[in-house]
Design a protein around this nucleic acid. Structure first.
Lengths: 220, 220
DNA sequence: CAATTATTCAATTAAACTATTGAATAATTG
DNA sequence: CAATTATTCAATAGTTTAATTGAATAATTG
């Protein structure tokens, strides 16, 4: 094999893979599937496109081997193909925050608009959990909590804050985590908690970031 | 700002960034610029396209803030904008090796075709260097060596193996490194060294992987 | 077995991307 | 200042991508 032919194969292959990622909806799908498997309709609803369109995007991701399918009845459950897919998304996310002023600004504006301000990092959370200093809330939908969450996290799904937060000790610091830095459940939860007099902050990263570090995860 | 508008900004921004990466030539440029700054003509020659075409691809990368320019006379030196850009490339590279059978196969075939076989990892190299067990060769072009290399590495640029390898002690193991896993300089060097009776292997990763880990680097 | 439902396929149109070509800038040299 | 050189710009044509629509599969339910 010639040297140029070799390069053509290699960079061409990675180019195709990158093209499959290079679409806002598909990136949002990747971000969503990092939480665990989802079926087509749920994905379409979540990312706000027609089912046919979501299906087409999923075909593109499938063809690029970025997602895999589990079939059950006539439901198709899509998941990320492996941890490396999330690692790429994580790197892209990081690059966008460091290099795209707009993205960084939009996030900051949105958070301050919600009264949420600065979050804490995964490393800081780990320290606080070791010293047993915080109450940890998983504010993602119940189904995502069920499929995997951080040990000792309480499930407080969106829309159920009223009931679930009864009897939470007011003295202690509360930290809410959700899907990731672009997920707004945690911002909304923190805003609500603050309005109730709690000392609250969000985790900058999300559950998948915890998981990919090899930290312990509770399922079910 | 509405939730959907927020998502539109964020995923849209990352989509544009990813689109700028999603081209074989541009990925090859990223891989090349990870070695250090280069001017347009050198890039065009290296990736085997016309100068006008290379310039256009560089404009795309520049607009996406993936590269920056240093102007000197009428030479334009392009470099990666920051370490996060390399981190994305590194993640994509890793994903392609784990998920694309073709890419993995092409690399394996090419290496065994060169008689080079399996390389060693950066972690293993670090151990061997600590125990002073190996002779380390930087087999990239002299200019890239000059702009930054691993401490104690000898510069043995392509085409100068005959002269440079005189007087190398034959008993010790020799490890050659180059630009990265898709760079074939190291494979060719290892094949040559083996033909001369040396015990030789290549480093799987490249110099930028060493550098991004924060390990010491010699410039000049 | 017919009706329902989740998902995919096919066809269309509008938009974006790619490589090529030759001309235009702008810094340097004689 | 004219000639040279490195790089960029502009226009073009061919290809690929995206969203929409409605029809086609294929599993499930009554």
């Amino acid at each position: 094999m010639e040297k140029r032919e070799f390069k053509h194969e290699v960079y061409g292959g990675i180019g195709q893979l990158t093209k499959a990622l290079a679409n806002p909806h598909r990136l949002e799908i990747i971000d969503l599937l990092a939480q665990g498997e989802k079926m087509v309709e749920a994905i379409a609803t979540e990312i706000d496109v027609s089912i046919a369109n979501a299906s087409q995007h999923l075909q593109v991701l499938k063809q690029a081997r970025l997602v895999t399918i589990r079939k059950q009845g006539h439901y198709m459950f899509y998941t990320l193909a492996n941890a490396d897919v999330f690692a790429v998304w994580q790197a892209l996310r990081g690059l966008s925050i460091s290099q795209l002023p707009d993205v960084e600004k939009v996030i900051r504006d949105y958070r301050t608009g919600q009264g949420a301000l600065k979050g804490i990092s995964l490393n800081v959370l780990i320290g606080k959990l070791e010293r047993d200093e915080v109450i940890l809330l998983d504010v993602r939908p119940a189904e995502e909590y069920r499929m995997g969450h951080i040990p000792n996290a309480l499930s407080v799904p969106p829309g159920e804050w009223g009931q679930k937060l009864e009897g939470l000790p007011t003295g202690e610091e509360v930290i809410a985590y959700c899907r990731g830095p672009f997920c707004v459940f945690a911002d909304e939860a923190v805003a609500y908690l603050k309005s109730k007099g709690y000392r609250a902050a969000r985790l900058d990263e999300g559950f998948p970031d915890w998981k990919i570090r090899g930290l312990p995860v509770i399922c079910g």
